[in-house]
Design a protein around this nucleic acid. Structure first.
Length: 219
DNA sequence: GGCCAGGACACCA
DNA sequence: TGGTGTCATGGC
């Protein structure tokens, strides 16, 4: 608990509040969560802009669009055929489960809703947790490639740790606080982009003195 | 021109 | 259960 909060405090001091997730509405956050799968966020922004311009950034707007037309709109996000199917599976789910009303959807018990989201084709654990946390404000911690890389370098987890145990590591050591989870994941992404991608070890960054590999070895 | 980016899934052993 | 291939664009 203390160590995880120390890391959080240092990241917050370094980068400040991130005000995540970028998106004007909860639905836009959900769409972004699907489109950003293994994809640079800048490309996702182009795709979302296309959907907005076409007046299709809504559950019925996406549900009623022919798959090839939807794919053409989201083309900049990459994997456009795959993601078109995933977006339509997601909107079919929320239309069926809550008549397309996300506020209503998030009234459900969130662990049960997580299982329902995971059953939707194309919604894996990271996407489900991003939707729950950033669109639904539910305390479901999001872990990603940056999280695994950073905490492996800190010597706290194995680099091959699977998604669920890594998520459980955080949720077992932190209070169930959606605002804390929100900021923590956003800070980890920022740190991953700025520091951990450009340095082989976390020397010279705000976490250096906590890093047994980089700091102690002086790499 | 190669690598990477806020994954998920099918297939195989 | 774990490893590998596939999906694809755009920035650096």
């Amino acid at each position: 608990m203390t160590q995880l909060l120390t890391i959080f405090d240092r990241l917050l001091a370094q980068y400040g509040q991130r005000h995540w997730w970028p998106g004007e509405t909860p639905f836009e956050v959900c769409v972004g969560a699907i489109l950003t799968q293994n994809t640079n966020w800048g490309n996702v922004e182009r795709a979302i802009a296309n959907l907005k311009e076409a007046g299709r950034l809504s559950p019925p707007g996406i549900a009623q669009l022919p798959p090839d037309e939807l794919a053409a709109l989201i083309r900049p996000a990459g994997y456009f055929n795959v993601k078109a199917g995933r977006l339509q599976a997601f909107v079919a789910f929320i239309l069926q489960a809550a008549d397309g009303d996300l506020d209503r959807l998030f009234l459900r018990n969130w662990p049960a809703l997580r299982d329902m989201l995971l059953a939707v084709r194309g919604i894996g654990p990271e996407t489900a947790d991003s939707i729950l946390l950033y669109a639904g404000n539910q305390p479901s911690f999001v872990v990603d490639a940056y999280t695994r890389r950073i905490f492996n370098r800190l010597g706290l987890v194995d680099e091959t740790i699977a998604y669920e145990p890594l998520r459980a590591f955080f949720m077992g050591h932190l209070p169930a606080d959606a605002q804390l989870y929100n900021e923590y994941h956003a800070l980890l992404v920022e740190h991953g982009k700025q520091a951990c991608r450009t340095r082989p070890r976390c020397t010279g960054c705000c976490l250096a003195t906590l890093c047994p590999t980089g700091h102690a070895a002086g790499i």
